[in-house]
Design a protein around this nucleic acid. Structure first.
Lengths: 211, 211
DNA sequence: CGTCGCATTGATATCGCTCAAATCCGGTGG
DNA sequence: CCACCGGATTTGAGCGATATCAATGCGACG
């Protein structure tokens, strides 16, 4: 019974009404799949609430999180360039998405250069966030990866609400859950973070803690 | 004396002549910078020959390779969305690039929806390659990262020509050079690869070597 | 011939992974 | 209300892989 409490994110206001009319709302329970590898790309998705992740199963049985889509973002928009998905997508927590028909979306972009530019810029911004994730994965020590995530994802006051089990965060960081638990424990002991339930708070947000 | 021997890659044919006319060719020596962090974004770059990398200096003195631009690709096009660069860019080997004025590029996109769509699709394809790099970094063992790179970057016959020192490849893989040397040595001993100078050849291209 | 950058190899320390076990917590059903 | 259950979290011990430090070889080039 997907019923996320937070309010729904409206789709970007630069989208033309004709496109918005064709959007179909979907609700996903935690763990439910939005699409699977090799599925044909029929829709472009916008996340209104919750969070999605795109995963590729690895040969060792684990899964690599290729990207995440949070509320207010398009998700897997790079699929626009191809006809089939190269990974699976599932909801990290109860989520709501808007599904736009892919060809209608392409047509709208081709017809309206202004729209296409705006969308391209949104993709560019998205690419930057992906770069940040990559920078994080290049850090070799667990402590640094964790701090990188916290400083990047926490709000101005240093608070980060993680709605899924921490094993999910470990996966995001390409760490084992035990390592993450221990690292968070150490950071807490050192007074660098506080923890309560699903909330983690950086005591000195914006401070250069890395390395 | 930047004088790369390979032929120059022509810019994409979907670019309008008006835009091509404004492109300025640049030649870069190995290690030369194309732009630096905090520089204003005045140009969009297309790589005609050689290879570029965008790097962010880390607090520990090392540098993280955020992305690479190879011949035939746009480089750092996500900068279109912002006004200042967030990282440095330098040539990995002697290179040639075309510099398009950023505002002319934006204007051309806004004016021509067809062009904007094509460019957006190119960005999407680029995003997929970035995803692949990320997947690589999520692999925990050095051997798997190396094989992932080889299988992804080698041509059909399994050949990969690496024009820069191997330390550059180590950096790309977020490994220490020594680890890469040792790993390549093992793979060679096991008959999985062959090496000669700057050329690495996978003996069984396309084979599922990752575990 | 000397130097410099790159490649290679060895020894050691450290970190994160792995396996294992215990505890906590929220939710469910009696 | 309480007992129970499963998932999530914590903690421990040991091992293996990679980083780190150090030394040497090697080839290009001035």
């Amino acid at each position: 019974m997907p019923a996320p409490q937070p309010p729904l994110c409206p789709p970007p206001d630069y989208l033309p009404p004709a496109l918005l009319d064709q959007a179909r709302p979907l609700a996903l329970a935690r763990g439910e799949h939005l699409f699977r590898q090799d599925d044909p790309v029929r829709h472009l998705y916008f996340v209104q609430a919750g969070e999605l992740k795109a995963i590729r199963p690895q040969l060792d049985g684990s899964q690599a999180v290729m990207l995440r889509g949070r509320a207010g973002e398009f998700f897997a928009e790079s699929a626009l360039a191809t006809t089939r998905y190269v990974c699976h997508a599932e909801a990290v927590c109860p989520s709501r998405v808007l599904a736009f028909p892919a060809d209608a979306f392409r047509a709208a972009l081709a017809e309206d250069g202004e729209l296409a530019l705006t969308f391209a810029l949104a993709m560019a911004a998205h690419a930057r966030r992906q770069c940040s994730r990559q920078e994080r994965l290049r850090l070799k020590r667990a402590r640094e990866r964790v701090l990188h995530l916290l400083t990047c994802e926490a709000d101005n006051s240093g608070r980060l609400v993680w709605r899924a089990p921490l094993a999910e965060m470990a996966e995001e960081l390409a760490l084992e859950p035990e390592t993450l638990y221990r690292t968070l424990g150490e950071l807490e002991q050192e007074g660098i973070i506080e923890r309560e339930r699903r909330v983690i708070r950086l005591r000195q947000p914006g401070c250069a803690l890395l390395s």
